[in-house]
């Protein structure tokens, strides 16, 4: 390399090795983005369909996580009912904005969909198809930076869904101290959502990551280490909680429509 004696400006001369292939990788690099795209697409299709189904999303004492908190009159009588907008016919649409926004701006999902849908890049060392690229520097993608506000809402939602899981310890007529398979489904749902949320990068930052001198903040160091454990597994929890939310909805629906019978444990 030449001396490049303090020139200041970086060398952007080009003159790269003339290799025309888009990638020299021989492995099935497309498999992972294709799987991601498949699962995400399936989820989007299912949840859109589900959001427009205005019946069968609740069956005492269960409520589908897509519809909780139930803010419309449409879901009278179910678990967490807060009738803010009684006239609204599609209660899921309003609610879903928050979890959707949370996941859409999630650092992990960003990676997943930038790769799978935007192909920027489709896989490592495989050229992307775009001519220009500005990343998250401009509108609208610069808005990804408000992720932490979605985190705040996500925490509220998690509390509500945990509440839903707790009130599911009742029987169909509302008597406490009972449990069915649906209770377990909702319980796991709430737990997975917490594992996902605790591992959030913004959460990790706010819990302690933003500090430079941990030794002066013993408690926050412990907290940071605790959420870091979830953070390392953020991807796994992201997928698990996503799939489980959909399954929970399916389960409640099946029970509510009478297609299956909710097995009761006690």
């Amino acid at each position: 390399m030449a001396a490049r004696v303090a020139t200041g400006e970086p060398e952007t001369a080009g003159g790269r090795a003339s290799i025309s292939a888009r990638t020299l990788r021989k492995d099935a690099w497309w498999r992972s983005p294709a799987t991601t795209a498949g699962v995400l697409l399936a989820f989007v299709i299912y949840s859109t369909w589900a959001a427009f189904q205005t019946t069968d999303y609740t069956w005492e004492p269960y409520i589908s996580p897509f519809f909780s908190p139930c803010i419309a009159d449409a879901c009278h009588g179910s678990s967490s009912t807060w009738s803010f907008v009684p006239w609204w016919p599609l209660p899921a649409i309003l609610i879903l904005i928050f979890p959707l926004g949370f996941r859409l701006t999630c650092y992990y999902y960003r990676k997943a969909y930038y790769r799978a849908f935007w192909l920027a890049p489709p896989a490592c060392a495989v050229a992307e198809p775009h001519r220009r690229y500005t990343g998250e520097t401009r509108f609208p993608l610069v808005l990804q930076n408000i992720h932490r506000y979605f985190l705040y809402f996500a925490v509220i939602f998690n509390i509500i869904l945990s509440y839903d899981a707790i009130v599911a310890f009742r029987d169909h007529s509302g008597a406490w101290g009972h449990m069915g398979l649906g209770t377990l489904v909702l319980l796991i749902n709430a737990a997975l959502l917490w594992t996902y949320t605790l591992g959030c990068h913004s959460c990790r930052h706010l819990c302690g990551g933003k500090l430079n001198i941990f030794s002066r903040h013993r408690f926050r160091l412990r907290l940071w280490k605790f959420v870091s454990w979830f953070n390392e597994r953020h991807m796994q929890f992201a997928w698990a909680s996503l799939v489980w939310v959909a399954l929970s909805d399916v389960y409640v629906r099946l029970v509510a429509s009478g297609l299956i019978h909710d097995p009761r444990f006690f």
Binding site: Y107, K111, Y114, R115, A120, P121, Y133, E136, L141
Partner: peptide, 15 residues
């Protein structure tokens, strides 16, 4: 330094 250009697709970590 263009931190915003990074779309956290993690290839750097992979290699």
């Amino acid at each position: 330094f263009g931190l915003g250009y990074c779309n956290i697709t993690k290839c750097c970590t992979e290699v």
